[in-house]
Design a protein around this nucleic acid. Structure first.
Lengths: 244, 244
DNA sequence: TCAAAAGTGTTGACTTTACACCCATGA
DNA sequence: TCATGGGTGTAAAGTCAACACTTTTGA
């Protein structure tokens, strides 16, 4: 056995440690999107399963019996990025029989949007990497499928809802915002039409500041109006009981 | 104890029988939509839990370790309605800690669309009922929330994708189709604009037949072009492995 | 002959797209 | 002075919403 093989758990070993206790295990997987150098990125980690040796996977974990779905997702985000005030949205569950080599694991996919430059962000694991979403051809498990589903959901969301700002620093120029839309949607946008469309939405506040350090005429800086900022995780809407 | 109370399981009894075996149980719940008498209906059943005595719930069941999510949903549909070629779409997972009084149960919600008049449809359980969706104020568990989420998803889907036809008999008039859209969307539509919009989509085939038995001028009958009919369940897209 | 719905086009309002020039800044 | 992007308006095309009359059938 090589050193590398010794470090890897095999699915068989994982199976022994889990399968006696769970008929079906349930996990969450987080597609953590970031944006840097005009490209949409996703945070992935080297798979620790021998079956997927050399592949990356999304960040996920089994759900604990005493935490709800969002709590589990926030826990993973906090553990992996150090951040706890991130945008998070559930996409869907994936549960095909063969998706996990260790046994039956149903997973619930979330995507989250974080500012890759945020001072709180710290990746304390060397196996974590930001990968360009467009360059990812293969991931461990069914994670490529999950990534694709989350990207589609993000694309559907982005023109109608002010979520994209979670990927940017607090202050940004209209050029940066447009480039982000282009990276997510995978299309080029007309600058004048884009600015018109954004101004109609009335999401932005002019900060009366200009860009620095750009090698050209600086643009105005804007921020998202506070009314559109996401709620903090602890204050999120959770349903305990029903009735009208 | 009254006779009714004797018939009911308590959540406590259910808990004893399940909780030792599952850390977290996982189920699917099906929002089965139908359409009759110009109203959107949903199939519900009397709750057999004492905690929800007198309330109705959606149709659901625990997922078996050897079936995937869609298979479980189809099984429920088949058991409850006798039909096995229905339209089915996953909406999302619901997993709050308190949603089930017997313990921790995460559920994955699906909606399905079936022709309430289809000859194969048979409700072999007297506690099953079609209820008018708009009149439902309260259901057992978090099922009202699930119902509302599924209805919203259906509304989003319906103008862009030819799914609504699963709620109608094979042949239908444009008036019936319009009334169905109105029932789902909860709005009134202009007849001329509606017909224009539908004809642009090019979903329909003129059957060269007319309505019978209407107390007014009969309209033409149409059917959905075969190209737009959903695939049979067994042939559905299932992902086993990724990468390309 | 009445009631009910079938069938059918046009106009104005609005939205979307395509497109070009001068300006401010840093190198 | 050059390169780079900032900032701005208009016209044409397309989409959407509002709206009314004649026809066909069954009762």
């Amino acid at each position: 056995m090589t050193e590398k093989e010794l470090r890897l758990k095999t699915a068989e070993i994982e199976k022994i440690s889990h399968l006696d206790y769970f008929n079906i295990a349930i996990s969450v997987d987080c597609v953590i999107f970031g944006y840097d150098e005009k490209e949409l990125k996703v945070l992935v980690i080297k798979s620790d399963l021998e079956e997927f040796s050399g592949l990356y996977s999304l960040l996920g974990d089994l759900i604990r019996p005493d935490e709800d779905l969002e709590t589990a997702s926030y826990r993973i985000l906090k553990e992996r990025t150090g951040m706890d005030d991130v945008y998070l949205e559930q996409v869907q569950a994936f549960g095909s029989l063969e998706r996990h080599p260790s046994g039956r694991v149903i997973t619930i996919a979330y995507y989250s949007l974080i500012d890759i430059k945020h001072h709180k962000l710290q990746l304390n694991n060397n196996d974590l990497h930001w990968h360009n979403v467009r360059e990812i051809k293969k991931l461990a498990f069914d994670h490529k499928l999950i990534l694709d589903s989350c990207l589609v959901r993000l694309q559907e969301k982005v023109m109608e809802h002010p979520v994209i700002f979670n990927l940017l620093p607090e202050k940004f120029s209209l050029r940066e915002l447009q480039e982000l839309y282009e990276a997510i949607l995978g299309v080029e946008l007309d600058r004048r039409n884009f600015r018109k469309k954004i101004s109609i939405k009335d999401w932005l506040m002019d900060m009366d500041e200009m860009e620095n350090d750009v090698p050209h005429r600086p643009g105005k800086l804007y921020k998202l109006k506070p009314a559109f900022k996401k709620k903090a995780p602890g204050k999120r809407f959770t349903v305990v009981s029903q009735g009208n």
